[in-house]
Design a protein around this nucleic acid. Structure first.
Lengths: 246, 246
DNA sequence: CAGTGGTCTAGACCACTTC
DNA sequence: AAGTGGTCTAGACCACTGT
């Protein structure tokens, strides 16, 4: 007894629910196990389905649950650590193991990207689409913007859009001297196309990693990569080869 | 005529709403301006308030809106870039400008932290509470865990809890040799205490930055910092002194 | 006090997956 | 066809902020 704290600030129901279910997940459920459906759970806890859903949404946001329409709600495995460190400065595509080139087209970039590129909003750029696959799962979708003028040997600017052309642009990029790069991470919500590639619904929370690649004092390329926030933890290993396992 | 796309996949209402309002924000509103209240907006768009709220929630998640109970919904300023780079390896508290020491107590860490510390779950640690303030605003709340055994000169282990003791622990830490650090970023939701310090409601989305400080081959300290995801963009400047302004 | 956003309800229908 | 999560409604009341 003692500090029973009689609801000086009454806790919202969904918040309390989240705690209760969260504890149940730790003790009574195994990873991958499916929970009772939402109507069942709502009835069991004596709340409306909307309230129950509010609790489940939070747990999904924290990476503890995974919900799929038409299937059900399952207990999520711990988030996988995805290395995004920049200690080994390198152009994208240097370690071709994790990123798959999907496509490449020529277009004018969004205004925000043009600003980062220090280019006119209507300057045409290569737009390379890549997918990061880890343990058989797509964890990130990337758009890499490279102004045509920055890659000298036009690697088939008129070549048919596709993976081959994407690899061509990456190859040209790697000919340049990389002076440095800076990076930012922020919360966003998945655009429709990214959501599709990541097997999520549009609007799903994602971690947006924006990288600016510098060469000869200019911005040579900008990458905007959206990582699934539910399943990923971004890691920056800055201490030799040590990586946070967990 | 052309690609009118007759709803092959009917877009959810709230998604469409989000787009419409988002565009209106760009063209018709200035930063800081207050929007009409939710009931008014819902009526104007001919939807239920819950649906309107779903759209506003997304926009808030993306840092475009700011909502405060009892006050209203305002247009948010662009996210501020917060530097969290680790290029200059340093113990916490080395640049005392941005972090304010708030408190320090002795306790046993959560299980997950104990694991990172490579310590027994019941080993007592200093828990230093700090607040990161930028431009007059609290942007992050941190808990720094330092095992008592790691800091040699017990800096008043029984001293009264408070800022003075916090600074004492940081001072002791800085006597050690820092071998390296690694870091991870993931999405989380604010615990009640963090939410209070960050002036948000519990459950608000946050970016959780976990840092492990290594000394003499061991983990000397673990920091868990929760940044407001709505107002912050974490930056990692790895190219000299260049910072992404935006 | 009036006005705001936050919580909650009890329903309905829709889109998707699986059998 | 049956069962799942996703969307949407039209209300109600609560907690908080201002005046």
């Amino acid at each position: 007894m003692g500090t029973t704290q009689l609801e000086s600030v009454p806790e919202p129901k969904y918040w309390h629910l989240k705690t209760v279910i969260g504890e149940a997940l730790d003790s009574d459920f195994a990873v991958g196990e499916i929970l009772p459906n939402e109507r069942e759970l709502a009835a069991r806890f004596g709340v409306a389905r909307a309230t129950l859903r509010q609790a489940l949404e939070q747990l999904e946001l924290e990476g503890r649950l995974q919900r799929r329409r038409g299937v059900g709600t399952t207990v999520a495995p711990p988030r996988m650590g995805v290395d995004v460190s920049t200690t080994q400065q390198a152009w994208p595509g240097a370690g071709e193991d994790v990123w798959q080139s999907v496509d490449c087209v020529t277009a004018t970039p969004p205004a925000a990207v043009a600003r980062l590129l220090e280019a006119e909003p209507d300057e045409p750029v290569h737009v390379v689409r890549r997918l990061r696959v880890t343990q058989g799962q797509a964890v990130a979708a990337e758009l890499l913007y490279v102004p045509l003028a920055r890659v000298p040997g036009q690697p088939a600017a008129d070549a048919p859009a596709g993976p081959a052309r994407a690899r061509g642009v990456l190859r040209e990029l790697q000919r340049l001297v990389l002076d440095g790069q800076d990076r930012s991470v922020e919360l966003g919500s998945a655009r429709a196309d990214d959501a599709k590639e990541l097997d999520r619904l549009p609007g799903a929370p994602v971690l947006v990693v924006t990288t600016r690649y510098l060469s000869e004092g200019r911005t040579a390329a900008v990458s905007v990569a959206t990582y699934r926030a539910d399943t990923c933890k971004l890691t920056f290993g800055d201490s030799g080869d040590l990586v946070m396992a967990s």
